[in-house]
Each structure stands twice: as structure tokens, then as C-alpha cells.
Design a protein around this nucleic acid. Structure first.
Lengths: 131, 131
DNA sequence: CTGCTACTTGAAGTGCGGTTCAAGTCAAGG
DNA sequence: CCTTGACTTGAACCGCACTTCAAGTAGCAG
């Protein structure tokens, strides 16, 4: 076997993902094993980078189906660019929303209103977050 | 019946939540009806504010169980303050992460690397996001 | 050879956040 | 009175992202 390939167990350790998750991702078409070491899946080293990207995108709120689509798309794909641009706007909006929420939480931590939900400043903040 | 109370259908319309979701929230202890109009749940107007808060927190990534806990806690509750402070840090971190992801997406939109995942700048960006 | 470990498979199970369904009930309108 | 429509209930179902399980297998040590 090509010893540049990495066993699933090792990929799991290095990526921090469970082996079951890797197999799950394979079924979803997100990654693929290059070969087998006996029964064991063997992956190319680049797979680790791919997994980092997947984890990153997943953490950002992409569904696995979306990620799979992104990974399949060609860079020349205009649709892909548009979708990425759309996602960029979405993420920007989310950043703004979370920033407002953070401010709201910051206030809440030191506010003494009882109940907290009645605090005018807090109510204002909540309205801003959901706006 | 107290005509300051609002029927579930009206609350659903005004909050933008499905009536089924409102009942679900009630089972989870997030809200409660003040009375009934026949069979119909009737809510106090403040419930709308409470729902805005719930929606806001849920959108921010709190689980419903967490939100329920927050809502039950007293403002004098030191644990609550600590938890909110912790959540504030969590949200701050998430804002930072999403900001990096946004930058990474911004680059990706205009980058011509094929495959995109091989672009050094993009790889850098992904590493920054997951760091 | 035996025993062990780390994997293999498909299928079922989990937790979250709900929605949908069937059967029933209430209040109002005609 | 009967119909209509918006609600009621518990239970079942949904999609997502996995995990867990049972039964089996490859490779290696002794």
C-alpha cells in the first residue's frame, strides 16, 4: 500500500472527528478514501485540509449538503461564486446580529432590573438583535 | 375573559411563530398561557416580548433548554450572571470566527485557484477560522 | 493455531427543534 | 339546530448530524 496514505484512525485523531463521522461524510460525498489498507480506509493527506474546510464551513452554519455542493463545484462555476457571495452576505449579517447580541448580553451581566426582561435597555437590545 | 389577553392565533401572527411552536415552548416551560378562551390559550401581551427574547437567543445558538433555565433564573442569581458572562465570551469568540470566515469567503469569491481548496491564501484563511 | 485490536458493514438509535396528524371541542353565525 | 373554523390533545413523524450496535474481518503478536 502507498504509505503516503493515512488510515482512518489516524485521520480521525488528526482531524478531531470521529471515525464514524468520516464514514458518514463519505456516504454524503464530502470525502473519499483513496484506497484500503486491508479493510481500512486509507486517505490522502490532503483530506485533512479538506476536513478542516468542512469543519469550518459546518461551524459557520452550512449544512453538509451545501458543503458537498460547494466541494463539487468548479472554480469557474459562476453559480458557485454567486452562492459564495450570498453566503458571505449571510455571514456578515449574522456577525452583525451576534455583535448586537453580545452587547445585549454585556448589558445584562451588569443590569439589576428584576425581571431582567423588563429592563428598557435590555428590551431595546433584544429588538435590535431581532431587527 | 380578560380582554387584555391575546389568543394563541394572534400571538402566532404577531410573533411570527407557528401555534405548534408556541405549544411546544409551553411544554418546554418557556412560556405559559395566562388563561383560556374556551379551549384557546390566552396569553398576556408581555409574552410577545418574551417570545422576541426567546427567538433572539435561539437564533444566537442557545438551546431551548438553556433559554428556559435563563428565564427561570432570578436577576439576583450570581450563577445566572456568570453564565451570561460565559455566553458573552462564547458569542464574542463566535463573532471573531465568523468574521474570519467572512473574510475567507470574500477572498474565495474572487479567487481563481483550481481547485479553490489549493489556494494558499484560502488555506491560510481556513486555518485562521478553525484556530 | 489462538487472541487481540482496530477496523468493516448496514441498520437502528439519539437529541434537537419542531411539524403534522387524527380525533375531538368550543363559540359564533345563519 | 347545524355548520364552520379555529382551536384542543397526545402521539407520531420529520430533517439534520451523527453515534451506537451487532456481527464480521484483516493483520499481527505470541
Amino acid at each position: 500500500m502507498d504509505d503516503t496514505l493515512i488510515d482512518i484512525g489516524e485521520v480521525a485523531r488528526q482531524s478531531g472527528l470521529a471515525a464514524s463521522a468520516l464514514r458518514f461524510y463519505e456516504r454524503k460525498g464530502l470525502i473519499q478514501a483513496e484506497g484500503r489498507n486491508g479493510l481500512r480506509r486509507a486517505y490522502r493527506p490532503e483530506t485533512l485540509e479538506r476536513l478542516a474546510l468542512i469543519t469550518c464551513a459546518r461551524d459557520a452554519g452550512f449544512t453538509l449538503a451545501e458543503i458537498a455542493e460547494f466541494l463539487r463545484a468548479k472554480p469557474s462555476d459562476a453559480t458557485l461564486r454567486e452562492r459564495m457571495a450570498a453566503k458571505e452576505r449571510e455571514v456578515s449579517e449574522r456577525v452583525a446580529q451576534l455583535t448586537r447580541l453580545r452587547d445585549s448580553l454585556r448589558h445584562a451581566v451588569t443590569c439589576d432590573h428584576d425581571p431582567l426582561i423588563e429592563c428598557p435597555e435590555f428590551k431595546q437590545a433584544v429588538r435590535r438583535v431581532s431587527a
